[in-house]
């Protein structure tokens, strides 16, 4: 069973896997104990009309034992989980690699901020299903969604985070081994949910630099104008990679605009509601 945990290439995956094994040993021991006792009792105390069953209504001491021992085990597990959870969720390392991944039916829309490290500027690069990150560096990722709830799942990174429409969630990951990894969607998102996946390219420093320089040639740092031709190249090279512009608009868009139009009449109330989602 164990060898099927996908290969872990993340900094904290080791802790998660260790906790998994820890729980595995505890539950396996509990399972064996209970099952063995059950089988022994079933055999030992099978029907025998020459004797009577033991007439007892319980044993407070024993019951206390099997209340307190599981309680202690669970508290221990809780504490162990808490520290690893905080390591994963709360101790976000400093980094200068940032990307934005937005789910939409049924693709990941990946946005790179470009050399100016700012999103929504001219040198941004947007592509579908194609995540390039450097190996061994923490990556801050901003997750959102255009329509329904998706969940970005990177099994090898022990990473999974739902993406909510109308909200941006900040998370981080780090891949310590170069290679390509599949990035499926883990939350039911509609008829195309199955098969919604992207590719995570964990590049060696050289490969990453090559990819980066190709995207943003060092000569023209603000080369937003050059990107059109290169996008085509990227499409051809990447095979399955689709350009964002060629994608059909998600179906949610017209509905949302309609609602906005409708609700525009509701002046103050509406603008308040709109702001709430930002």
């Amino acid at each position: 069973m164990m060898q099927w945990l996908p290969e872990d290439v993340s900094p904290y995956g080791g802790s998660i896997d260790a906790l998994f094994y820890f729980i595995y040993y505890i539950t396996a021991a509990a399972f064996i104990l209970v099952t063995a006792l059950m089988i022994i009792f079933l055999y030992q105390y099978r029907r025998d009309d020459s004797r009577r069953a033991v007439y007892t209504h319980g044993h407070t001491g024993l019951e206390l034992v099997w209340t307190i021992i599981p309680a202690l085990v669970f508290i221990g597990l809780g504490l162990a989980s808490k520290s690893i959870w905080e390591e994963v969720k709360l101790n976000v390392p400093e980094t200068d690699v940032e990307i934005r991944v937005t789910g939409k039916q049924f693709n990941w829309e990946v946005l790179y901020p470009g050399p100016d490290k700012e999103f929504e500027t001219d040198d941004d690069y947007q592509v579908d299903n194609d995540i390039h990150v450097p190996v061994g560096k923490p990556v801050r990722v901003f997750l959102g969604s255009k329509d329904v709830i998706h969940s970005l799942f990177m099994p090898n990174l022990r990473f999974k985070q739902d993406m909510l429409p109308g909200r941006q969630i900040e998370a981080w990951f780090q891949a310590n081994k170069a290679g390509t990894y599949e990035v499926p969607c883990a939350e039911l998102c509609g008829f195309g949910h199955s098969g919604m996946k992207g590719t995570l390219y964990v590049d060696t420093p050289e490969d990453y630099a090559a990819w980066y320089d190709k995207r943003w040639p060092p000569a023209e740092t603000n080369g937003g104008d050059a990107s059109a031709a290169e996008t085509t190249e990227e499409v051809l090279a990447g095979g399955a990679v689709m350009d964002a512009e060629t994608m059909p608009e998600p179906e949610a868009e017209p509905a949302a605009t309609e609602e906005e139009a409708e609700s525009a009449m509701e002046g103050a109330a509406d603008s308040a509601a709109q702001e709430a989602t930002e």
Partner: peptide
Amino acid sequence: DGLTISAGMYG
């Protein structure tokens, strides 16, 4: 007066 159920969260 325009406050319908579909006119925003308030309604």
